[in-house]
Every structure is written in C-alpha cells, then in structure tokens.
Design a protein around this nucleic acid. Structure first.
Lengths: 394, 394
DNA sequence: CCATTTCTTCCACGTCTTGGACTAATAGGG
DNA sequence: CCCTATTAGTCCAAGACGTGGAAGAAATGG
C-alpha cells in the first residue's frame, strides 16, 4: 500500500523532480528548472539549496555564460564529485568493478581475469571483496562518496541479495549481499544483487546511447539472458524471474535443456550450440572463422539467428517493445546474425521492432550495476540527504 | 515527466489512499483508516468529509455496531449510490452493457444478441448507442451518477479511443469513442475504448475472486487473446499491443495465419482449429460431444491444450506470472483442457504457475469495462470531486 | 452515578509551496 | 558614460495541508 503523503514526502518528490531533470537534461539554470518542472522560482531555489548542501548539485564555478540580455544565469548541474556507485560483476571467467559518478561517467574500471567455476564460492567472494576494496580506495582517492554497491551475477536472485542459483558458477543459495557487506565492514555500504541480464539491459539503457525506453536486451553467452525495460524501468515480474528468454520453447520435442524442459532457445542458439554446429572448438575460433568468411560457421550463426528471430517474434507479441538490442556474443556476431533475425521477425510480425546491437561489449552489466546505484540516488535524493546528514553527525 | 507536487497533489494522493482502502478493505471507521494509512485521525476526518460531500463515501446509517468498550465507531464505506461506471461490449454476435456501482456490484445488465459482422460499422454504432442510452436511463432510475463509459472491442485500439483494426467485425480505423460520445450528447460522458482481452483480464482480477495480482488471462474465442496483469495493473507495452498471446509462434513452418505469420498459437488452438480437428460443425456441438465423452473431439481439445501449454511455458518464462486464468471457450473446455495444459507446463518449467478457469463466462470483458470506470474514480477521487463541483455549479 | 475506554472533532502550530515585490547583473541605445 | 529594458535570483507574507495534543462524545463496567 502506498504510504500517506505528508510534507516531507512532497518535498522528497520535488527534490527528485529537480535532480532528475538536472541529470537527464544537462546543465540548467534555476529559472529553466522552474519553467520545466512547473514549480515556482522560489521553490526551486530552496530545493536546489538543499541539493547543493548535500553535494549532489554544483554551480558551474568557471563562468556563467552570459546569453543575450538580462542577468546571466547561474548554471547548475549534477555534481560529479557527489554520490558515486560501485558496480561489481561475478562471471564465469572474470571479476569486474566499475565506479560511476552522478553524471554517469565511469571513474574507475578494473577487470580480473580468473576462472570462477573451479574455486569455492567462499574463495570467489574473498577475491570479489578484494576487488571491491581496491575500487573503494580508488574512489576515495578521487574524493568520491560511494552511495552503495550493486553486484551483477549470472543467475537468479531473491529480494534480499541472496543468489538462489547460478548454474554456471555452481552456486546455490549464497548470501552474497550479506557476505560482501561484512567484508566491506568499516563504514559498510548498502549492497544489492541483481541478475546480469537485467543489469546489462539497464546499462544499455543508460549508457548505450541508442535504446528507446521500451526494449528487450538479449545477452547471448553460454546461456541466453533477457532484460525487459518498460517505460525506462526494469520489468521483473511477480518473482523477479521475468525475461528468461533463454527458455522460451521453440521445439517441444527438441533436445533436453539444463532447465529440465525441451527445445529451449538457449539449447538451439546458445554459444555451445553454435560452436558445436559450426564445428569449431571455442568462441574465439568461431569469431575468427566468421570474420574469414568461412561458410560452415556462418551457416551455424544464421541458423541461430533464425531461431532467435522466432523467439523474438513471440517476445514482441507478448511484450510489445520498440526495439531489440543484441548484446554479448550476439553483438559480436551481429554482422551475420542480425540480417537473419530481422528477416525472421519480418516474416512473423506485421510491425517488427528495430534490431540494434550493443556497443558496450562485456561492460554492459557492470556499468548497469554501478548506474543502478546512482540512479537510486537520483530517484530519491531525500533518502540520501537523510543518510548523509545522519552519517555526518555520527 | 512527473508533475510538480504541490498541496493539491498531496491532498489528491491522500484522498485516493483513504478511498482506496475503503474500497479494498471493506467498511472501516475513521480510527481504523488512520491506523491503516498512517495519517492522523484529524487528517482522516477532513479527507472523509470531502469524500462524503462528493457522495463517494457513506456513513452506515442503520447502526454503528458497538463493539467492546468505548465510544462506538461510525462505520464508513464506499457509497453504493455514488459514482457508477457503464461498460459496453461490441462482439461478433452480441452487444452487451453493464452498469457497476462504486462497490463493484452490478446494477444493470443487458445483452442484445445480434450479428455484427454483416452490418456496417455505422449501423452497429447506432445500435450500441441505443443500448448505451437504455443503460443510462436505467442508471438514472436508480439514482446512480455515471462517471464514464468504457467499451470493449475485439481488436486493437489507440490511446484516443479509435479502433485501429477489429478483423472479426471487419472494422478498420473507427473513431468509436468520438462517435459514441456524440450519440450520448446531452450531458456527455467520457468514453474510453480498450481491447476485449485486456478488459476481461481486469474483470477477472476485480470480480473473479480468484486471480492473484500477477497473472495472465487467456481468452479463447475465434481468436486467442491475452491480458497481462502485473501488480494489479494492466501491462500494455510500448504501443498498447502487449499480450498478443494468439500470435506466439509455435511452429515456424506451420500453417499461415491471418496475421501474415506462420504457426501462430491461434491457428493451432483457436476455436476454428479445434472444431475442424474434432470433426464437428460448431462450438455448441464441440461442447456437447465433449460432455458426452466422445473420443475424437476430446482428443482435439487435448491437442489444443498441449499447444496452449507450450505457449504458456514461454509466456511464463517471459512474464513470470503467479497464475494463468483460462477464459472464454477455454473455460468451458477446462475439464478436458486444463489437465493437458498443466502437464505441458510442468514438463517445461521448474515452477509452473497455477492454472485456473474463469467463472465469469462471457461477462468478463463487459464487467471489466464497467469496473475500469469506477476504478478510475477510486484511483483519483480528486479529479471526480473537481468534475462534480464544476458540473454542479454549471 | 462515576471511572474508563475509545472514537471523533477542534485548534494552535509547523512545513512546504505560492505569488508578488525586491535586488542583482547584464546588453543595448542615446 | 549613463539609463532603460530584460532576465535571474532572493525575500517574505499568505495560503494549504498535515500534525499532535486537548477536549468533547458515547458507549461499558463497577
């Protein structure tokens, strides 16, 4: 149930409105903010003063570019030294960290190549904590105030930061958020955990520069993940398991899948299926042979594209997105894959969505994770004000 | 962009909170409302006074059932003589009207059996206006204040009440809302138009008494429609075309469909496909022969159930609902259909959703339409207050 | 008949936005 | 070089709304 709205809530809502406008529409003066938001100039002044005090908004120190006539405006923008987000990613063969400032700019990146299937979850967690600690120190050196941590994992999670199952990591029921918060103990940060495919979709939305507000992100890796963005927000479903594109059923009598079903998309168009059908040994060789124009691997990719097209036609019928973004392996295979996907979509739909390929590469999920921390601050600056006021007093 | 929140908005939000609580949680005293909403008793008193003035809330006139000790509570509930909604439905072989009061109770029903495929859209519209007029007079006789009209149509609509395409009615680009508003000219009512499958899903949610807040409603008729409800709200997608379950692709090389694609669910498990495979002439005979235990039609229904199960497995992977509700023809065929659907879902999903069958029959869509009018009043009573105040003054 | 309990209303107060008056800072024209 | 027009930002009284405590109302139980 929605909570009762009182004065504090009204102010919180208007703080978010002002900060959001500043984050989305670049530098603006107080007068422009008033015109855009519908608040009066006085209200905007008061709200901005609070945001400046909290270090979320800064007045362009250099010069106020005097326009035509009249008093020149004091240009405000999101403070790039304000709240920052730490994004982490645990994947099969690497750990990654990114720190993003309030403006969305990446301020630190680090990737550790490392096999995470063999070692125990505890050992992976220890290494992840070390990576996170280094990132935190780097943020401190740049005088950034970390507002939280978000971890991307290739698996299902519950609401409390527990990883329920990550088959490719051999993880089952790991209290990731809790463990990581303990490891970061001195001045603990809030830790959230989310699915890699979901965060990659958000990364594409915020940093990809091409996704419309309603789209589906398909990340092809060993499995096939999907992230559904509706109206600029992630669609999670009733149990946070929506967008499981990899297990859409293409052939009810097809090969059995690790999920227990048969003929899942992942089994027909995932990395392993393409590699096997192409007659190559691994992903690197697949890409190299495709680039060489070799018929057999290209044919395998085209078959995968047709399967993917059929699955995406069903997805479009159900979710009605504006676009489909191919990520991960599928982005790398786009030159050969995309035409087949588009053709198949056209055959099954009267109005097929645009098919785009991601330019973020493997970084999409970590950047989405870091971005989700700063977006939370932008979406509810009042909470951040309360926290920093309390933290500063303590 | 979200609008600036000022005092009026705060009050509007709290009015909606109080009225919503009263609508959802039955009769409550002011003290109970204060406890549930988090508002103070004073605020609740003021808010309730406004709602009573507008005729949306009534104090139980009869008796205030004195409980244990202390002053007995004045019991408040939604005023059943307050705002009412008129729901209309245009379908292939009938027109229907239902008037629903604020409590959700049906106060008037009328169905005209009539073939709407032959006559022109203009002639169907004239008859629909007559049905609507009769319903309005019936509402007036009961001293109900109609707050609006919502029309269910078997086709796609745009945001402005235009029917873009309703194949089974042979309608193309009909300005239904506009025409109907003209026909109801003296004291015009706001008219909205929505897809039949979507409104049937809402009807099931509000009046079916069994649907959880996240479910998918499947209405099997000549075509197969889907309505997706997420968190108690309809999911529409970017172009209001989400939930097109009938055109999920089951067999990319299957029979061609009216949509231009191939192997759509509708082509394999729609009414025509079942009837043809069962070797019967129409729906009535199909149901009769199934009830008689005849093998061939029951086999045809079971095949359809397997197709439907495969499609719903994909739907579940993408939308993650708590339940699937079978409506329309599928509800009538449930005894034979449901076991096959459940078995197929179980084979493809680790955690299949519950499969329920609707008890509302053909009424689901009209009732959903009427309900959507009163829900709009409950969701934003402030707008209704403003309208009645303006209307009363004029 | 009075104390107790619970519901409701009343009123002074605090918070937040508004709207207009006032000050600040620039460009352009005489 | 000064004056006016123009636009930006601040200040302050007034208005709207929720809060919180006190007072009043209406029942029960001793």
């Amino acid at each position: 149930m929605r909570p009762a709205l009182q004065h504090a809530g009204m102010r919180a809502s208007n703080l978010a409105l002002v900060l959001g406008e500043l984050a989305d529409a670049g530098p603006l003066s107080r007068a422009q903010l008033a015109a855009r938001t519908g608040l009066t100039k006085s209200s905007v002044s008061g709200l901005v003063a609070d945001l400046v005090d909290a270090g979320l908004v800064a007045e362009a120190a250099g010069g106020t570019p005097a326009g035509d006539r009249g008093r020149p405006a004091a240009v405000l923008s999101v403070d790039r030294q304000g709240a920052a987000g730490l994004g982490l990613e645990v994947n099969v063969d690497y750990l990654a960290a990114v720190v993003t400032d309030l403006g969305g700019g990446p301020r630190y990146r680090h990737v550790v190549t490392r096999d995470n299937r063999g070692p125990s979850a505890a050992s992976v967690l220890a290494e992840l904590a070390a990576v996170a600690g280094a990132a935190r120190r780097a943020a401190e050196e740049q005088h950034l105030d970390l507002a939280g941590v978000c971890v991307a994992v290739p698996g299902t999670v519950d609401g409390g930061g527990r990883v329920l199952s990550a088959p490719n990591l051999h993880w089952h029921d790991v209290a990731l958020a809790e463990r990581l918060a303990e490891a970061l103990d001195p001045t603990p940060l809030g830790v959230t955990v989310d699915n890699e495919a979901n965060l990659a979709a958000l990364g594409e939305l915020w940093f990809g520069g091409q996704a419309p507000p309603d789209f589906v992100h398909v990340s092809g890796e060993i499995g096939i993940g999907g992230g559904v963005v509706v109206g600029g927000r992630l669609f999670r479903g009733a149990h946070a398991r929506a967008g499981e594109l990899g297990h859409v059923v293409l052939d009810p009598d097809g090969p059995t899948c690790s999920c227990g079903g048969r003929g899942c998309l992942e089994r027909l168009a995932g990395q392993d299926a393409i590699v096997a059908q192409a007659g190559v040994t691994d992903r690197a060789e697949l890409l190299a042979r495709c680039a060489d124009g070799d018929e057999k691997p290209i044919g395998a990719v085209r078959d995968a594209g047709r399967h993917l097209g059929v699955a995406l036609a069903s997805v479009t019928n159900l979710l009605d997105p504006d676009a489909v973004v191919l990520g991960g392996l599928f982005a790398e295979l786009a030159p050969w894959l995309r035409p087949c996907v588009e053709e198949t979509l056209g055959r099954h739909l009267p109005a097929p969505p645009a098919v785009l390929s991601s330019r973020l590469g493997a970084e999409a999920a970590v950047r989405g994770a870091a971005g989700s921390v700063v977006r939370r601050v932008v979406a509810d600056p009042a909470r951040y004000l309360a926290l920093t006021a309390a933290g500063g007093a303590a």
